[in-house]
Simulated assay, not measured.
Amino acid sequence: MTDHRDVAIVRWPGQTPSVGDGLAALLAAYHLRTEAEKGEPVADVDHLPDRYRAEVTDPRTALAGDVVLVALQEDAAVGCLVVTSADNGQSEIKRLWTDPESRGQGIASALLGAALRHAAESGVRTVRLSVWEWRTGAIALYERLGFTVTQSRDGRKQLVCMQRTL
Rank of each mutant, 00 (worst) to 15 (best):
M162R: 00
S152K: 15
V160M: 00
L96T: 14
D75S: 12
T16H: 15
K38F: 14
E37I: 11
G14Y: 07
A110M: 01
E55V: 01
Q73N: 09
L96P: 08
R164W: 02
E74V: 11
S18P: 01
L116Y: 01
D87N: 11
D46N: 14
Q158A: 13
E74Q: 15
A120S: 10
P100H: 11
V78F: 05
A86V: 12
S152P: 11
E121W: 00
Y30N: 10
D99P: 02
G106V: 00
I9C: 07
L69V: 04
A138T: 02
Q90I: 04
R135I: 10
P49V: 06
R144V: 01
L112Q: 05
A43S: 13
Q158I: 02
V7Q: 04
D66N: 12
H4P: 15
A24Y: 00
V83Q: 10
T2S: 14
R135S: 12
G22F: 07
V149R: 15
E121K: 02
V19G: 06
W12G: 14
V127H: 02
P17W: 11
V78T: 13
H31K: 00
D75Q: 13
V78N: 05
T150I: 15
G106T: 00
R60Q: 14
A24W: 00
S130T: 07
L112N: 04
R125A: 15
R128E: 07
L72K: 02
T165W: 01
V19L: 07
S109M: 07
K157C: 05
L32N: 08
Y30V: 03
S122Q: 14
H4R: 11
A25F: 09
Y142W: 03
P100I: 10
D154K: 07
E35H: 12
A120M: 04
V19P: 05
K38A: 13
L27D: 07
V68N: 07
V127D: 05
T34R: 12
V131N: 02
H47C: 06
G113D: 15
G20D: 13
Q73D: 12
G14F: 09
C80L: 01
H47M: 06
Q15L: 09
A28E: 09
D75N: 10
L116M: 13
G113F: 03
A114D: 11
V70D: 12
D99R: 03
C161K: 04
R103Q: 14
R53D: 07
A110E: 06
R128P: 00
V149Q: 12
R153P: 00
R53S: 03
H47V: 00
A86E: 13
A108E: 06
F147P: 05
R156F: 09
P41F: 06
V127G: 01
